[in-house]
Amino acid sequence: LSERTAARRKINLMQLVYGKPESKSSDEMKEISDEGSEDDEFFKPKGEGNKISQKGIHENDVDIDDCSKFLSNVSLKDWSSDDMVASIRDRFVTGDWSKASLRNQLS
């Protein structure tokens, strides 16, 4: 079972990054036609376009800021609490070496 879930997750990640290979072209076509219908509104305030893109998922935002630094995934945790300290204790040389070596064997 674990193998199967692993296999499923693998596909999911690949799909997340590269998208579905077979249906990709048709999806794009659809998007283009959708855009065409949007053009019915001839006069559109400039700000509105921005609003839509902000609402939409980041992946589709073609004007996303070009920045390699990624800060938002680092949800600021309070590392002073003992539980948090214990959770990454073994990532340091002062931690448990046997556990750390186990970690590398698994891969």
């Binding site: 692993a6 997750r9 693998k10 990640l13 690949m14 990054v17 590269y18 970690r103 698994l106 891969s107």
Partner: peptide
């Protein structure tokens, strides 16, 4: 170039 992306659930990393 297409990467093969595989999660490693035991360590919560991606290979």
């Amino acid at each position: 170039v297409k990467f093969v992306i595989k999660p490693d659930p035991s360590t919560e990393t991606v290979i």
